[in-house]
Write a protein that binds this DNA or RNA. Structure first.
Lengths: 200, 200
DNA sequence: CAAACTACTACACACTCGTGTAGTCAAGTC
DNA sequence: GACTTGACTACACGAGTGTGTAGTAGTTTG
């Protein structure tokens, strides 16, 4: 897993650079020339290997999805974290996760499909754990969105904490904070009923 | 509050169009010419009123922040929703919230400052409600991020639900689902201790 | 009435973008 | 040794970008 950068083929370096820059700056924000420079190749080579920017993006989508599934499979064999997605705060998956969320927000179908699969998984997990919300699908969608929230807002959360949450110490801290959110009930069922009446 | 579009000054139309397009497509994705066309004016007028794209963005930041605070003040006088930010799912605040999150992700200091203020508010609220997490700051940051997550991923959540969450019916549904997340404990304190040992 | 100011448009400028084309170079293949 | 193939670079093109400049029409000000 610790592949030296120089050992990667140019094609792989381009793909990795694209995932990094697309994730950091968004699809529009990262130009082919930027990516080529980051990978240490000419911009023409990007086109040679991937054909177009859109095709490069799709290749990144596919690779990121496959790698995430692969890493997820490796992790689930070491114990279930009971609902808190182990991928969520896994350092190797960081750039991939960042890229996927960006791609999702920029309208990628592959990335969105990955989210929908996540919702399915959460819904199945909740059901098997005996959790019975009034709206299981809505509950699962909310939970799936929540799992990504600290990632999407990692810069802001890091600033609020005065600590980079992409470091081991940082993501341990925010991970435990997330677990507390899932543990401490904020509202009683009576309060919810009251709000429900207010809204409609 | 229901100002007809035609009655707005050109400057206000430009600002509203910018907030809408910046929010939908990102700062880079919305050109000055796009914004001018959306507002029904020439691109030169955008420059005349705001000076530069960056200045336009800052003006949008300030306006969005002020309006959000204003709307929030109007809402808090009608009962406290006990932690679930009423702004979160308020239809009038939708375009503003969408813009602010986008601006935040594209590195706006004003938008990030608004997030940090939100964390402060959540922390103070939790404390006053007798909620005592082990890491109050981390807890508040996680909760603040969660409050924005369904907004950021509104397209994906809508797809998962088969229902547009920017409609009244939709945001009621996801709002109630969020409340259930805050109500049903997913983890027991014992499970958390177990995970904590695993991680370190 | 003249000057000044404001809202507004038209147009051109340099730059960057994604893309297209032509060509080099090395490693096989016959 | 001629030929092909694939990795790779250099360069040019048209479109779109933010920005700059010049100018017009209408109102305000002296």
């Amino acid at each position: 897993m610790d592949r030296a950068v120089e050992d990667l083929t140019a094609r792989a370096r381009i793909r990795d650079a694209a995932i990094r820059l697309f994730g950091e700056r968004g699809i529009e924000g990262a130009s082919i020339r930027d990516i080529a420079a980051e990978a240490g190749v000419s911009s023409g080579l990007v086109r040679h290997h991937f054909g177009s920017k859109e095709a490069l993006r799709e290749a990144c989508d596919r690779y990121a999805k496959d790698r995430m599934i692969q890493i997820g499979a490796e992790l689930t064999q070491d114990g279930d974290l009971t609902g808190l997605d182990p991928l969520l705060l896994h350092p190797i998956a960081f750039p991939l996760q960042i890229y996927i969320v960006r791609s999702m927000m920029d309208g990628s179908e592959t990335a969105t499909a990955l989210f929908l699969e996540g919702v399915d998984a959460v819904e199945a997990w909740a059901s098997s754990y005996g959790i019975t919300p009034k709206d299981p699908r809505g509950y699962a969608a909310a939970l799936a969105a929540i799992k990504l929230s600290v990632f999407i807002l990692r810069d802001q959360v890091s600033k609020a904490l005065g600590e980079d949450i992409t470091t081991p110490a940082g993501y341990n801290r925010i991970g435990q904070a997330l677990m507390e959110v899932f543990t401490i009930p904020l509202l009683t069922p009576e309060q919810i009923d009251k709000i429900r009446k207010q809204e409609k």
